[in-house]
Design a protein around this nucleic acid. Structure first.
Lengths: 189, 189
DNA sequence: GCGTATATGTACTGATTGGTACAAAAGGAG
DNA sequence: CTCCTTTTGTACCAATCAGTACATATACGC
């Protein structure tokens, strides 16, 4: 019963996500959002609640679309080094110029927004756990020395990932960053 | 001739810097700035030009105060590993919670502000050159294998530094990051 | 002490911000 | 066809934004 939505909320959300990704939270106005989403203001508030709620939803969608790709890549049954090298290369190439929305959020919004901070920290923990599990399994397969601490290496890889993301936004061309991969991964030897 | 300034521009600039550092560019209003600087609006515009000019000046002051510390630490005549370890530890501890203003700027302002982008890229190049020189000298002293490429290692260290800065803002306590230093620096072996 | 050049304080500008009231439109259920 | 629920479009709200006009206060050169 009642009138149905004229637009696809998923599509609208992803359009909003792209604007937030490019411009950040504060620099994005409701006019920017409604124009990109192709809907008007009351529809936005009806479906998404508020600018803040919409941002949080966009951030979650971003993680679904992009971060989970890398976690999936880590679940390959062999060749951790190759999996890491491939996943990192993909991230470097895809984020050159635009950067990473999660990193943008950490610097802009996390310090004064508890719900955003909680989401980011949960996501970081999830990524780090995925790294640690992949490393432990690589140790079982004999790819990596068993005297290395998987949790510590996982924290290292996650930190490096953030560093690559920042550098990919601040001018380093993707080739320059890809040349770093052998050095980055040499800590696994 | 004429009436002198009632305030110290250097002090006022550093107060503005701290607000921008904490809140970012867009989230900082002129009321925030004038209150923190202890001056009123026309004085701000008289001395600093505009909000944008003030931000750029604050960013340059930030680099003078903080980034140059690390470059100076690299000029020690011996013990590159110790110098790096000390400098990285100091950065981790001092930035836990607040983060790094340069990294904040990269994610928020750099993509749509040419003057900011130019400054950041020049600063990054300067830092990387300082790393490369320090590494080359350590090679001369026999501390590091001469078959390693100083420019590549310098780029790696700069990237790691950005990663540490992001992680220090997104929840990792300083102890957890300090434990990464042996791994990070093992690429020099 | 007087004139002059600059800084300060108050009070304002038009534009834009996030958010909403209200009436018209739309479509499914009976 | 009619009712009823929900969406849509327009037009608005108070609050805040960056920036400034103008009159007053202040100190130096003479």
């Amino acid at each position: 019963m009642a009138r149905p939505l004229k637009f696809d909320p998923q599509v609208a959300l992803e359009n909003a996500m792209n604007v937030f990704w490019r411009q950040g939270y504060e620099a994005t106005s409701l006019d920017d959002l409604t124009e990109a989403m192709g809907i008007n203001r009351p529809s936005l508030y009806n479906t998404f609640g508020s600018k803040h709620d919409l941002y949080l939803a966009a951030l979650k969608r971003y993680r679904e679309l992009y971060s989970h790709q890398m976690i999936a890549a880590l679940e390959a049954q062999s060749g951790l080094r190759e999996a890491l090298s491939g996943a990192f290369t993909a991230i470097i190439r895809s984020e050159t110029g635009s950067g990473c929305m999660m990193v943008n959020t950490i610097t802009e919004t996390l310090p004064h927004d508890d719900s955003v901070a909680a989401f980011i920290q949960a996501a970081d923990a999830e990524t780090e756990t995925a790294f640690a599990i992949a490393i432990a399994r690589a140790q079982d397969r004999g790819e990596i020395d068993t005297d290395k601490n998987p949790d510590l290496l996982a924290r290292y890889l996650n930190m490096v990932l953030q560093g690559l993301r920042v550098r990919s936004k601040s001018g380093c061309c993707s080739g320059e960053l890809e040349h770093l991969l052998p050095i980055i991964l040499s800590v696994l030897d």
